[in-house]
Structures are given as structure tokens and as C-alpha cells.
Amino acid sequence: MASVRPVKLDINGKEKTLSLEPRVTLLDALREHLHMTGTKKGCDQGQCGACTVHVDGQRVLACLTLAVQSEGSAITTIEGLAGPDGTPHPVQQAFIEEDAFQCGYCTPGQIMSAVACIREGRAGSDDEIREFMAGNLCRCGAYPNIVSAVRKAAEATA
């Protein structure tokens, strides 16, 4: 039956080779095998967005992606967002300035989603931000400040 196999992943520009069962999700590969715990596990069922990462530049849910499926793709996680000298990404900076979190658990997913949302051109108004960030739930209810942060970052990059 299913056995462990080598899986080669390109994460934040670095190649990692792991030995994984096929059922291991990209989320578990990141957190449990690579100990990259920036990407969060909320629901593990595709409902909350805490596990949002970019695969080939597109925002996706790591909890519903098999690690083996991501072979050959460029994966970006929250750990890969800051500049090489550690300067926060403009969206990270905007989240800090707008106080866009309380417990912070949803925040890496919110930020990864927001970076893509802005890139997709879907951050033109508060309503558009709310609609296109709807896949990221925040149990602390920091939504107003999250919307402000996304708008601020979008305006800065416009």
C-alpha cells in the first residue's frame, strides 16, 4: 500500500526534499515536517483560510492541497514575505500600523490572502475587500482593522 516517497518542494525559493506519505497535506508538510509554523491550522477543512499560502503566485489553502501535488510549483509562505534584510512586506507593515489583529492566529493567512487580493486588483473599495477576503475568518472579529490595513496597503501599491 501507500508508502513514504521523496517529495521535492520549492518553498520560499529554497528546495526541500521530504519523505512523505501521499496523504500528507502541504499544511502538515510545512508545520510538522519542516517546522515552519507560520502557516496556521484552523479548521483543516477548507473553511477558515488560516492556512493560506501562494502556489505559483496564487492564493490557495494548504490544508486541502496534497504536498505531492505541489511538486514543481513555487510555494510562498508567510515566512517568505519579508525582504531579504527582514524588512516587513508592505501588507505586513500595514497590518501592524492599522492594528489589524488581536490574537494573531488568523493573521498569516489574512496577510497571504491580502497580498494576493491586492495583486488580483480586488482591493478597490471596502466592499470589494470584504467580498474578496471573505475566505479568511477572524474569530477575534478584527475585520474593520483588517479592511483598513488591506486598503492602506492597496493604496500604497497603486
Binding site: R23, D44, Q45, L64, T65, L66
Partner: peptide, 24 residues
């Protein structure tokens, strides 16, 4: 069969889907 996986993996986690082999 596996495409985007957003139904299949979700249901596999609930053990509603019990694939022995997944064809990507």
C-alpha cells in the same frame, strides 16, 4: 480522481471518502 481536491480531500478527512488510490 483528484482535481482541485477541495471536495475529495475534505471528504477524505471526514472519512466519507476512503480512496485507496488517488489519481491526480
Amino acid at each position: 480522481l483528484l482535481a482541485g481536491g477541495t471536495t475529495l480531500l475534505d471528504l477524505a478527512k471526514c472519512e466519507v471518502a476512503r480512496p485507496e488510490r488517488v489519481i491526480d
